[in-house]
């Protein structure tokens, strides 16, 4: 893939350092708004070094000391900011049930943000559905890869359960069922480009933040429990929305092959939700009770950012309609 277009001084510095081979300056991130587009693009680029190559980078910077220092400055500030944003979600969930699976489900039940899936189901135009597919592409074309980084950091039955979940995400022995591959096929069927990172320049900052959260939590051993809480919240908010999104895709007349990816997730994630909540997070906390708050933090941070991305996309799409109505 190619390096994205910078959205401010921090991302400009990161893109320049990668393209030119010049040194990274971690201090550049010191005053950035970590939830803003600029910092999120910078963080996204630095995190991608662990997944893929940039064709236009001068060198492999995955373990460049300056790149890692800058990534950690941004990642730690991002996680700190999120901890402040989700205090209430975590406290409410902790009081709502006496085990972690119940607490995560209570947190999901209490989330009252707008539903992107409901909009896609009933109201979105064909162009908005296509826009959604492009926004989703950064996550979905590397679907589940982040959580494979967690596997060596958990043990016993938790590792077995996570591997079982990942095996299903990776096609359960059938290359044609690899979820990331199914998303590429969905993009092609929709007339879009299936190459990873192709649409990063149009992906909204709040959507990048969701993708970055998933990578940041999964790539640090000390946030492994938060990564698994994030996974559980993701899986437990996927099955019902996937059904609505598939119905919306069919409503706007896109080919059946586009909806197939979301159809797959209705049944798959109904099972994955149970595995992630109970056999992964429940078992992790049973073995290491001190990790309970980390699990809840990961779930809450994911729900917070997912809600912010939905609010942002819905506002953008409703603005489109105002513009169209006025013209």
């Amino acid at each position: 893939m190619e390096l994205p277009t910078p959205r401010g001084p921090v991302s400009a510095h990161v893109v320049h350092a990668l393209r030119s081979g010049d040194a990274f300056e971690p201090a550049v991130a010191a005053s950035a708004d970590v939830l803003g587009d600029d910092a999120q693009v910078a963080l996204w680029v630095l995190l991608q070094l662990h997944y893929r190559d940039f064709d236009d980078a001068a060198r492999d910077a995955e373990w460049d000391v300056g790149a890692v220092a800058l990534r950690q400055t941004l990642a730690e500030s991002f996680v700190d900011r999120l901890r402040g944003l989700v205090t209430e979600r975590v406290a409410l969930a902790r009081d709502a049930a006496d085990d972690v699976p119940g607490q995560v489900m209570a947190m999901i039940g209490a989330a009252d943000g707008p539903s992107l899936a409901a909009y896609l189901h009933r109201e979105a135009t064909r162009e908005q559905v296509l826009s959604f597919l492009r926004q989703r592409s950064l996550y979905a074309l590397k679907e589940s890869d982040a959580h494979s980084f967690v596997l060596p950091r958990v043990h016993g039955s938790v590792k077995v359960a996570l591997a079982e979940l990942q095996y299903d995400e990776y096609g359960a022995g059938r290359p044609d069922r690899l979820h990331a591959g199914m998303y590429a096929e969905a993009l092609v069927a929709a007339g879009l480009d299936p190459r990873y990172g192709r649409y990063v320049d149009e992906v909204a900052g709040p959507v990048l933040a969701v993708d970055n959260l998933i990578s940041v939590l999964a790539l640090q051993r000390r946030t492994r429990a938060a990564s698994l809480g994030q996974l559980a919240a993701f899986e437990a908010t996927s099955s019902l929305p996937s059904r609505r999104i598939a119905a919306g895709i069919e409503r706007v007349g896109l080919p059946r092959a586009v909806a197939a990816y979301f159809d797959e997730h209705v049944e798959a994630d109904a099972a994955h939700e149970q595995i992630a909540l109970r056999a992964v997070c429940g078992a992790l906390v049973a073995a290491e009770p001190e990790l309970a708050d980390d699990v809840l933090f990961g779930a809450a941070a994911y729900l917070e950012l997912d809600e912010r991305s939905a609010v942002h996309l819905l506002a953008r799409w409703r603005d489109d309609e105002v513009v169209e109505a006025a013209s």
Partner: peptide, 8 residues
């Protein structure tokens, strides 16, 4: 037919 390692 069951096509997954685990089904719900």
């Amino acid at each position: 037919p069951v096509t997954r390692p685990v089904v719900a």
